[in-house]
Design a binder for these strands. Structure first.
Length: 711
RNA sequence: GGGCGUUUAGCUCAGUGGUAGAGCGUUUCAUUGACAUUGAAAAGGUCAGAGGUUCAAUCCCUCUAACGCCCACCA
């Protein structure tokens, strides 16, 4: 490392070399750290998706984690910062599909095997790029332990987890109405939907009361309002709010479904809004998510009338084979002709569309795999309520509790190609028969002759990420490096990810995966808009690293990260660079006073100025320690900035020039001590420049990254 | 619709029951030996609005307004 003191600090020239020195030292690896270290300090990196490049959120997240790791490493802990990347199921598949689209082909033309090859190529390319970017930020993760969520060993743990849950009776298979994209041929999670306003109609349709006894309100029909009359062939009830007096007498009665011979019941359900439409809802469990839930609660049958391609099936009688839009028009006409249609209103409503292709979503029933959440959710709840896991800021606990207290069973299966295929093997002769096992059975236990066929479904990405704190570790590491200490993440995945890691850890390792969960802010643009690539508001942090250096970028993001959302202010990066320059020059001044040998003894203050700077140093150290341990990183950095720039440079350095003549030795002793201590404290925040300066200290010494915090 | 959060100097944000703070920006002055990516100093705020509690409120309570986020989404 030959940073040249005669020139201004040049991060571009110095950073790669320093990073290499760190890597070569082996100190990122907890097993090869110097000294006797008894206590662990472990951070499991939130897995970046291999979908593309890093964003400002990664810079923030990893800077904070690296501060914790570097701080604890210097304090004598056996530190592990475990890095990894996530295959990110649908997100990555979508990216690759986009790429194929540009090439004029598609995954269907390629076939599953070829397509997955393509995704692996993508993963190599972008996953690799992400890792390089993380290195440029300067994070001290143990790259020898790098994992990808589809690595073989990881996959083994994923399969084992699935089998474990199944054998425990927590996984079941069942039909459920899911959001289905007829064009993509897959179900979509709620996160994968977008909503679009559409000009539609609201039709008021009369459903005649069956077996009408005289006296019941003297009503001949109950009127429902619907935007989708074509689904009426799948109606299995009419639902009203139990508190709705208009219909109280009708609950329990039946209606005769128009255009069919079927009779369906009138049921009561709290989810019905009495003020909307007529206050009566036709319930079509097969083709509406809310209706499906009403159906579950009221034990209604499910009748599917629309198929996977978005066409009416034979349950729709004369409309079979029509597209839903055609059938809708035809059904309306028929209802009108037969006098069932009361009126038609124009109506603007939101329809769900596929976030990938924009096609309108068609809810249809499909066979999915579920994980029973009741017990597992309770474990995650208890872990936080009992204080085994601390979430901060504290108000995020409410979000966590609300989600877990209202949990539904987790739909584990996805109809995607990129991901962990379910360890479920079907009999080719009887497709209802299956085996759940980590390995494919040699022979089919049912028909005794077929070779069995693995389920084509893959697992929800979060199923594998939920196992990260231990599936990311080798068998021997599982004993050594679990559980972790702090988990730092953004609030949007508190439930999707954190809550699931907590119960997974308890389930498979018998302990929570970490003690503290720190939720940091989201990075917004200066106008308060969310930073996002798709909105074109995202900024690549490498822009700043290239221009001002990693330390300046880290400084800027940490400076602004005080807990709430951050309206990103570029000016802070320039401030970071200026501070780096200040450190550089102050260090040069101090070291120029030293000559070839550094003072070895404790500083011996002789003047008021000496006393004062040592007192302020001690105070700064104390408050830095407290702030880091309380996860108040911004406060810690600002305190150090203030101390270094003003107390040390503006005041003491100037004073030292005056007292150098007659109290040279003592002054040098104080200067050196204060500088060395300051560099240590600044190192977790601005690792490169502090290390670069430290390497210029006279005499042989090791790396600042493993220097003892207290000396 | 439900929940949460924010509103303090031109900008981005800290902060405290008792004369308001930082960074950046602005103005003035200084300057050849650590640093002009500098130093010294200054200007700039009825701490969103209204009401309440209190000897005292930017800080506690209520309401209002604007903005942001999350969840549920309306047949």
């Amino acid at each position: 490392m030959k940073a040249d003191f005669s020139k201004p600090y040049d991060p571009k020239a110095v950073e790669p070399e320093i990073y290499k020195t760190w890597l070569d030292s082996g100190y990122f690896n907890p097993d090869t750290l110097p000294g006797k270290r008894e206590k662990n300090y472990i951070v499991y990196m939130p897995l970046p998706n291999v979908t593309g490049a890093l964003h400002m959120g990664h810079l923030l997240n990893n800077s904070l984690q690296d501060i914790l790791i570097r701080y604890h490493r210097m304090r004598g802990y056996r530190t592990l910062y475990l890095p990894g990347t996530d295959h990110a199921g649908i997100a990555t598949q979508y990216k690759v599909e986009k790429e194929l689209q540009k090439e004029g082909t598609s995954r269907f033309k390629l076939g599953r095997e070829k397509f997955i090859e393509r995704v692996w190529q993508w993963k190599e390319k972008y996953g690799g790029a992400i890792l390089n970017q993380l290195k440029q930020i300067g994070i001290s993760a143990d790259w020898s332990r790098l994992r990808f969520t589809m690595d073989e060993t990881y996959a083994k743990d994923v399969k084992a987890a699935f089998v474990h849950y199944f054998e425990k009776g927590l996984i079941y298979r069942g039909a459920r109405t899911v959001n289905w994209c007829p064009r993509c041929g897959t179900s979509l999670s709620e996160l994968e939907l977008e909503h679009k306003e559409e000009q539609g109609h609201l039709w008021y349709v009369k459903y005649p009361i069956a077996n009408r006894e005289s006296g019941i309100e003297n009503r001949e029909y109950i009127m429902v309002a619907t935007t989708r009359p074509e689904t009426m062939f799948g109606d299995t009830a009419v639902a009203v709010n139990p508190q709705d007096k208009r219909y109280a007498a009708l609950v329990g009665k039946s209606v005769k479904l128009p255009l069919t011979d079927r009779e369906i019941p009138i049921v009561a359900d709290l989810k019905i809004d009495p003020s909307f439409g007529t206050g009566a809802l036709k319930v079509t469990p097969a083709h509406d998510i809310l209706d499906f839930e009403i159906g579950q609660r009221n034990k209604l049958p499910t009748i599917q009338v629309i198929d996977e391609r978005g066409k009416m099936n034979d349950k729709a009688g004369e409309y079979a084979g029509m597209k839903t839009e055609e059938a809708r028009a035809a059904v309306v006409q028929k209802l009108k002709d037969l006098g069932f249609l009361e009126k038609e209103e124009d109506y603007v409503h939101n329809v769900a569309i596929c976030y990938r292709c924009g096609h309108v979503i068609e809810p249809i029933p499909s066979m999915q795999w579920f994980l029973k959440m009741e017990k597992l959710a309770k474990n995650s709840l208890k872990a936080v309520k009992s204080g085994q896991v601390d979430i901060r800021p504290e108000n995020f606990e409410t979000i966590y509790f609300n989600w877990l207290e209202n949990i539904r069973d987790w739909t584990l299966s996805r109809q995607l190609w990129w991901g962990h295929q379910l360890p479920v093997y079907f009999c080719k002769e009887d497709k209802d028969k299956f085996v759940v096992a980590e390995e494919k059975p040699k022979a089919c236990p049912f028909c005794k002759q077929c070779g069995m066929e693995q389920s084509e479904d893959v697992l929800d990405t979060w199923f594998s990420s939920a196992l990260w704190p231990f599936a990311g570790l080798s068998e021997s590491d599982k004993k050594k490096y679990y559980p972790g200490n702090a988990l730092i993440t953004a609030r949007d995945i508190l439930n999707l990810w954190v809550a699931r890691m907590v119960f997974s850890g308890l389930e498979f390792m018998g302990d929570v995966p970490f003690k503290d969960v720190l939720i940091h802010g989201t990075i917004l643009t200066k106008d308060g808009k969310r930073m996002s690539k798709s909105l074109g508001t995202g900024i690549d942090p490498l822009k700043y690293i290239d221009q001002f250096g990693a330390d300046a970028a880290r400084f800027a993001i940490v400076w602004q990260a005080n807990g709430q959302d951050i309206r990103w202010d570029e000016a802070a990066v320039a401030a970071g660079r200026k501070f780096g320059n200040k450190i550089w020059n102050a260090s040069r001044f101090v070291l120029e006073q030293m000559g070839d040998a550094a003072p070895e003894s404790e500083p011996e203050p002789q003047t008021d100025a000496d006393e004062e700077i040592l007192r302020k140093l001690a105070a700064a150290k104390k408050s830095t320690e407290r702030a880091i341990e309380e996860f108040e990183f911004s406060k810690a950095l600002q305190g150090l900035y203030d101390f270094f720039w003003h107390d040390l440079c503006d005041v003491y350095l100037e004073t030292s020039k005056k007292q150098m003549a007659d109290k040279g030795a003592a002054t040098r002793g104080v200067l050196f001590f204060v500088l060395e201590s300051s560099l240590k404290m600044l190192h977790p925040f601005m690792p490169f420049i502090t290390e670069a300066v430290y390497q210029k200290f006279p005499g042989r010494r090791g790396l600042l990254m493993v220097a003892e915090w207290d000396r």
